[in-house]
């Protein structure tokens, strides 16, 4: 069987997979990291979003072998080693941005990337557009948008500039 070596949440793994194994299957089934979810089979829902070398990707639309040598961060690896939640996780809780929790891991991983890649600021409109790849059937997104806006200052250490929309 083919082998793949990659680092997941800081731990190095070398595992055997079929070539057709998806990255999400490797994470969930081989490594037992079931926080990353699968919500669709057409790459639409974003329940499977993880960070690959720092960028958010849909782990259902990648072969495990394509991740050879990569650094992957999943929802399980987002909080600090001592269990302190990432500010995005904190704000999701504070603003009730999750209900059933199924979309949440992917939503949080996308949101972290969205905030990180917008150091100049983020308007509500940009947040909504930035969540295009993530579906949530429970919340109506209202509180997710609020949580992301609230996480921005915590992640960038300054006040969120008032959007020039």
């Amino acid at each position: 069987m083919p082998q793949v070596s990659l680092t997941v949440n800081g731990t190095h793994h070398t595992v055997e997979v079929e070539n057709r194994t998806l990255l999400v299957e490797l994470l969930r089934e081989t490594l037992g990291l079931t926080g990353t979810h699968v919500g669709c089979d057409t790459s639409q829902c974003g329940a499977c979003v993880v960070h690959l070398d720092g960028a958010s990707v849909k782990s259902c639309t990648m072969l495990a072998v394509q991740a050879e040598g990569a650094k992957v961060t999943t929802i399980e690896g987002l909080a600090a080693a001592d269990g302190t939640l990432h500010p995005m996780q904190e704000m999701f809780r504070e603003h009730h941005a999750l209900q059933c929790g199924f979309c949440t891991p992917g939503m949080v991983m996308s949101a972290v990337d969205l905030v990180q890649s917008h150091p100049e600021g983020l308007s509500e409109h940009q947040i909504r557009e930035g969540l295009e790849g993530n579906l949530c059937r429970c919340t109506g997104y209202h509180n997710i948008v609020k949580a992301i806006a609230a996480a921005w200052p915590l992640m960038h250490g300054k006040a969120l500039p008032v959007a020039a929309e």
Binding site: R28, E29, L33, T34, G35, T36, H37, V38, T74, I75, E76, L78, A79, L85, Q89, F92, R93, E94, H96, L98, G101, F102, T104, P105, V108
Partner: peptide, 20 residues
């Protein structure tokens, strides 16, 4: 604030397909 959120936010939810 919800008690269940810590589990869901840290990827420790326990859904049917997570069980083997």
């Amino acid at each position: 604030r919800r008690k269940e959120d810590l589990r869901f936010l840290s990827g420790r939810g326990h859904y049917t397909d997570d069980i083997n």
